[in-house]
Structure formats: C-alpha cells, structure tokens
Amino acid sequence: MNNTILDIQDLKVEFPINIGTVRAVDGVSLKLNQGEVMGLVGESGCGKSTLGFSILRLLRPPGRIASGRILYHGRDIVSMDEKEVLKLRGRRIAMIFQDPLTSLNPLFSIGRQFVETLQTHEKGINKKQAILQAESMLESLGISKERLQEFPHQMSGGMRQRIMIGMGLILNPDLLIADEPTTSLDVIVEAQFLDLLADLCRQYNLTIILITHNLGNVAQLADRITVMYGGTLAEVGLSGDIFHTPLHPYTQGLLASIPNIKLDQPELSPMEGSPPDLVNPPTGCVFHPRCPQVMDICTRQRPPAFQKNGHQVSCWLYR
C-alpha cells in the first residue's frame, strides 16, 4: 500500500528580480508519509516559506515554479489548472501562518470568515449549518462559541492562532502546512498550541509540515526533520537521529548554535559566515564556503542525496 501523501520531485522556484534570479528553492525532492509530522528547519531566507507556498501554488508574482513536480496523492499540483488548485486549497491542504493577527481579515467577524470558508467549498450548505459547524469546531478548540460574533482584534494571540487552525481544519484537509505558527506567541501559549497541534494531528490523521526556526518546537512534535540550506535540502532524517547523530556539517553547526537543546557538544558555537546569496549561489555545494570540513570536490560539484544510517544527506563526506 502506498501511503505517500506528498511527493516533491526536483522542485525549483525562482523570483526573477532586476539584478538576476533568486533561486529560492533549488532542486528539492522530498516525500511525506500520511500522518507524519515533518519539521522543516533552516536559517532565515533559506526557502522554507517559499517551499510551503509552492505546494499550494500561492507564490506571489514574480515568483514562479520553474520546474519539478509536486505530487499530491499522485496528482501533480504544478500542472493543475487554477480551478482544481482552488478546490485543493483549504479543502484538502490547509496552511496557517506566522502572525495570526494579520492572518484574519480585521473587518469581518470570525463567524463570517468561517461561513465564507465553508460556503466556498461545500455547495448548498446554508449559513445556519455553517455557523453550527463553526461553533462545534471552536468548542473543540476550547473557545466559547460566542466568540464567533467578535472581530479578530478582540482576541488574544493564542486564541487567534487556534481560530486560524480551526478555520484551516474545518473542511477536514489531510495536509496542514504550518509556517512558523508559534513565532508570535509567548512561550506558555506556544507550548499549549503545540500540544493542541499534536492532538489534532492524531484526531484528524493529519500530515503536518511544521516550518520553524525553533528546533525545540520540532523536537517536541516532529517525527522526521528536514534541514534546508540555501534553497536545497541538507539532511532529512528521523527526529531523534537528527538531534543525536547529525551527519551534515550544517546540521551539526545548527545544533551546536542552539542553547536550549541537550547535546553532547560541550559548548555553544555560533556558525561562521552568513547564508548564501541566492542570486549567485556558490558553485558545488551551497554550504561549502562555511563548511569546516570542506573538500576539493565540494567546490566543484553539487552533492546528490546519499543514504547513510537512515538519513538522507547531501554531503560528499558520505559518498
């Protein structure tokens, strides 16, 4: 039985700008299994959000998918026509964003935004039924149903983020892309929200792509972790493996630079150098200018993904 829900194949995303082309995602291949939580981590600007947006074809112009395929249950999203993509959005694949305050339309009541979402996808559902559905969703998220009449600015950040996820899940999608959903929340609310996410994942048999730069978050929630660097995948592996036996020098550096994770590393060492220029990326391996273990071949040839101890790692060390 094939339980792959999403199969990204050699995806390339570009932003043509006046000084050249930003290769925000440059040849990413990734498979997601049904029901898993995939953590997607990496420094700011490495292309995490761009990858997330591409899955829903939400790239803003001039951004475009240059090549590759995104198979969702075997159907290629990249080549779908706009109408079909509209049917996927919200109904099959949901996405929530970093800032829940700005993700809700300030002029529409919460209820109205729920109703609109439901009526867009479920033909023939009337307003009353939609409201009822929204009410039970809110209650399952621990929010009183009276809140439906209120406006986004009347709610706390945590509550808004729960509402966002409620709106995302009300149509029962099977894939959720969460782009740094807790960045704007305080630590306690963040922990609660991650618990909620874990519950929902089981309850709805959701597959989640959890984008974050907080490795603590993914440690808590993710089954597997994907580490991105400069528009490419550095390493993919089981959560525990990535934390305890990171293979890619970039993953090792990333972990060493994070204070709140229990690691064998004796001291904290921030990584040298800065992220690559995606208009003129380095030749060979994009990480080689910062890599402590750089070899000759790294400057010339881009490493393919090697399989090593259950990790998938793009580094010549594991050839």
């Binding site: 049917k87 919200g90 996405m95 339309n105 300030p106 979402t117 867009t120 966002m164 995302g168």
Partner: peptide, 25 residues
Amino acid sequence: ADYIIAAEARGIRHSRIVYRHALKN
C-alpha cells in the same frame, strides 16, 4: 496583507478576495 494570502490559502475565489476582502479594507 497576510489575510489576503490566508484567504487565498482557504480556496476563496480571486474576484471575491479582490473586491470584498481587499476592497473593503
């Protein structure tokens, strides 16, 4: 604005997003 892309992510029609969500704001 974020809520525009969020509305798009929920599958709401483009014309509705432009002439209701955006125009009202």
